[in-house]
Amino acid sequence: MVQIPTSAGGEFLAGCRDEAPLLLGVAPFGMIYGIAALAAGVPAWVAQLASAIVFAGAAQLVIVQMLAAGAGFIPIALTSGLLNLRHVLYSASMAEYVRHLPRRWRLLLAYVLTDEAYAVAVLRYQQRHAAAADHAEHTDSGTPAADATADLRHWYFLGAGFTLWAGWQLSTAAGLLFGATIPPEWELDFAVPLTFIALLTLLLRERAGQAAALVAGLGALAFAALPYKLGLVAAIVLGLAAGAWAVRRLGPVR
């Protein structure tokens, strides 16, 4: 594939370079978020700050759409808190590669552990793991801890995460600048539900997920009358129950 850098700076730059193409897919979401945040009445500086504090695209879009619909504090916190729970999966999957690092490194890397940075970094770790395994056949230092001194892959991870972070902040800013000049008749806030439709279609691969989505969608209509948009939370929980039921009924998939 590509040559393997041997310095911290080289790893960092390689991470930046490999993450860069993903920004093409991320930037439109950052812009849609910025535009929709303004349309929902969020002050521009708060919307920009949110991209640094929350740094999770789907959750930020959810927060903005719920604000626009007049949802209260608790339903928004519960919905976005539930939606972001998937980051525990990425955390678990990166654990074996970063467990040996000093605490300050793990604290830093946790901040940039997003969907897109994870996708790039995990490939790098697996790639070099294979190389290390070949090497281990005729040396004795096969364990990840043993070659930790020479292991600079966390710099690669940081480079990928930093690039995504910078891209997200810049595209948010672009959306906020652009959004301020667009008349509301353009209805660009409609891009948010369209984004959810697109992501949903990609996610509906297996039966249990389809059951969860169907029940949650119907639940959102059935519980529409609950105050502060709490019906959304109820619908999602019911959908998760349906998904769990389907897994038990149909057996684990894959």
Binding site: Q65, L200, A216, G231, G243
Partner: peptide
């Protein structure tokens, strides 16, 4: 199942 359930509920509600 969290992502499909959330996006479906938000789409239907929106």
């Amino acid at each position: 199942h969290i992502a499909p359930a959330s996006f479906a509920a938000l789409t239907a509600s929106g």
